[in-house]
Design a protein around this nucleic acid. Structure first.
Lengths: 145, 145
DNA sequence: ATATGAAGTGGGAAAAAGTGGGATGAGAAT
DNA sequence: ATTCTCATCCCACTTTTTCCCACTTCATAT
């Protein structure tokens, strides 16, 4: 399970260290794709296969699924982890997550995926959702335990 | 069951001693997460597994659950208890609970979890809720027993 | 009152994680 | 064919984290 929050450097070559704690779980080939809410999603090959199976089960006859699948599949890239545990963010994906010219990225472990965020976008997002956290917690509190 | 209130030092490395009375129950691997009301929650691995299972079954396509899962998973860390019974608070979690630059933390045992509070925030919280305790009891009394 | 032990605190050395940058080789352009 | 550019691989340095040992303080019992 991927959990935690880390702020790592994006070096001049676009490389970002994976937190050591996640390396074993991620293996040495990962899939990076466009995420939701202006971040990138990073999956293990295994999780990606599961996810893409779910997505491809929805009908391409619906324009919504077409758009969504184009986003996810079209944005996906397979990336190798180098010998010291870094992934290379492709330029076009950096654009998707407002990471161009940034020298830092925030990495969030969310269960079965890693999310990559622009530092400012992430802290804004947290501020907004923090205010809603109690409400959401109350809502969810009605359904779990 | 975890009960009681303790004030312990946060040393320069971010370490906090667990009260000896709780050590057996907590085991030597715990999960620390962002809690509610500006404190941290500390769970045993067992409790965490129950909690995270509930959450990971929710859909990543809904923005509410995305936000909540980011909060809980992203705000969580597995921490080992060292040989003398201390846990290490990660910097990013100290920020979440207003514990940066504090040299003390208040530890509260609440049934199945430990809560970690900033001293001042905790005493303010107590003051406010003390006054409301009667009303809150009435309200809760409507739903339990 | 003193001794004994457990709990809590402090800090140094070794190991691991994170970062920077150069060498090598493939492919493109001239 | 030669040169140039870019990406990949590899090595080295720096910082952070982890592990271990030692000291202090508090409580209990003799």
């Amino acid at each position: 399970m991927l959990i935690g929050e880390y702020t790592h450097k994006i070096d001049e070559k676009g490389r970002v260290s994976l937190p050591a704690k996640w390396r074993k779980e991620m293996g040495n080939k990962i899939i990076i794709t466009r995420g939701l809410d202006n971040c990138l999603f990073v999956f293990t090959s295994k999780e990606w296969i599961k996810l893409s199976a779910e997505l491809s089960s929805s009908s391409w006859l619906k324009s919504d699924t077409r758009a969504f699948n184009r986003r996810i599949f079209g944005g996906a890239t397979e990336v190798e982890i180098d010998t010291v545990g870094r992934m290379l963010l492709p330029e076009f994906l950096k654009k998707e997550a407002s990471l161009v010219d940034m020298d830092k990225a925030v990495l969030i472990g969310v269960d079965n995926r890693i999310e990559v965020w622009n530092e400012v976008v992430w802290s804004d997002y947290k501020n907004i959702t923090d205010k809603q956290a109690d409400e959401i917690a109350e809502k969810i509190g009605n359904t779990i335990r």
